[in-house]
């Protein structure tokens, strides 16, 4: 069944989008990530213009992170104070990102920049995750106890000034890295249409030493607001949010996420991470191919922005 997307201005198959949303939702539920980093490239592969894929991806991320954050509020595994500081940074980063987005679009380099950013980021994160999880898998197979990173050990981040106490996270740390991390994620959110959970979660654990149980809830909390802000600004400045497209993805996504979360409980942590790493690398690889393959036409047309 075809449906016409009002903002993307193309006809698409409604079931393909629902299935896409459900599949990504399933994976995001399974791995505990927002899924924005999969949705946006998938939309680009499905011939949705990258600018619209990014803005709509940000809109879709709100739904999955909101539904995820609700269950963390219920379980009390959400640090509102830490989330709030991350968010303050996020708003600044996101505003900067939107500005860069509009600038690149006028230059005609937006599509390239989005693809490059995806390839580099997904390639790096996927690669690191694969190495880490394969090592962990090997360690468990050989029977050796997994080597834990010594906690409580302070790195340079803990020597920065302007310290603040985050009670729920049992943390006493400078606000500078927290704001910086929030800003970085906000920037990526507005340029890539991702929530940024796949960077935020490891950063909170390894850099700020936030206890693992509050990490996901807190990250989801900040992602709701950053992506809501990103969606709003994209809607007002670039008019690239397609609600029709976003709604179909969300509808499939929230359903898939709940089943994915259940399926995820049956797999072991290292196996999950290895699978996710392979998936991330596959997406990066597919995007990279498009950068190098000779396009069918070297020329492209675009309208002139009134600005």
């Amino acid at each position: 069944m075809g449906i016409y997307l009002p903002i993307a201005e193309i006809s698409v198959n409604i079931f393909v989008l629902l299935a896409m949303g459900a599949a990504v939702g399933f994976l995001s539920g399974m791995f505990g990530v927002g899924g924005g980093f999969l949705i946006t490239p998938l939309l680009i592969f499905y011939n949705i213009p990258p600018a619209i894929a990014v803005a709509t991806g940000a809109n879709q991320v709100i739904a999955s992170s909101f539904s995820g954050a609700l269950s963390h509020v219920k379980r009390g595994t959400l640090d509102f104070k830490l989330g709030g500081v991350l968010l303050a940074g996020g708003i600044v980063g996101s505003t900067g990102g939107i500005f860069v987005f509009g600038f690149l679009r006028r230059l005609g380099q937006l599509d390239l920049f989005i693809s490059l950013l995806y390839v580099v980021l997904l390639g790096t994160v996927g690669g690191l995750m694969l190495v880490e999880s394969v090592n962990a898998l090997r360690a468990t197979r050989s029977g050796a106890a997994p080597v834990l990173k010594k906690s409580g050990q302070h790195n340079w981040i803990h020597r920065l000034p302007l310290k603040m106490r985050f009670r729920a996270s049992k943390l006493f740390v400078s606000v500078i890295p927290v704001l910086g991390l929030g800003a970085g994620i906000g920037f990526l959110s507005s340029i890539m249409g991702v929530g940024g959970g796949f960077i935020m979660v490891p950063a909170l654990i390894y850099l700020l030493k936030v206890p693992t149980n509050v990490v996901i809830g807190t990250s989801l909390f900040q992602i709701i607001f950053t992506s809501a802000y990103t969606t709003l600004v994209h809607a007002t400045t670039n008019q690239t949010v397609d609600v029709m497209l976003a709604f179909l993805l969300m509808a499939g996504g929230v359903a898939g996420a709940q089943y994915g979360a259940k399926a995820g409980q049956r797999l072991r942590g290292e196996q999950l991470r290895a699978l996710l790493a392979l998936l991330v690398l596959a997406v990066a690889f597919r995007l990279a191919i498009d950068l190098f393959v000779t396009p069918p036409s070297l020329y492209s047309l675009s309208g002139v922005d009134p600005t």
Partner: peptide
């Protein structure tokens, strides 16, 4: 329109949890 898009996403997320909660 942006406010509507955001509200729709939150509503969908909330409803989705109610309906499909596992």
């Amino acid at each position: 329109y942006g406010v509507f898009a955001v509200s729709l996403a939150m509503l969908t997320g909330w409803l989705g949890r109610l309906v499909f909660r596992k």
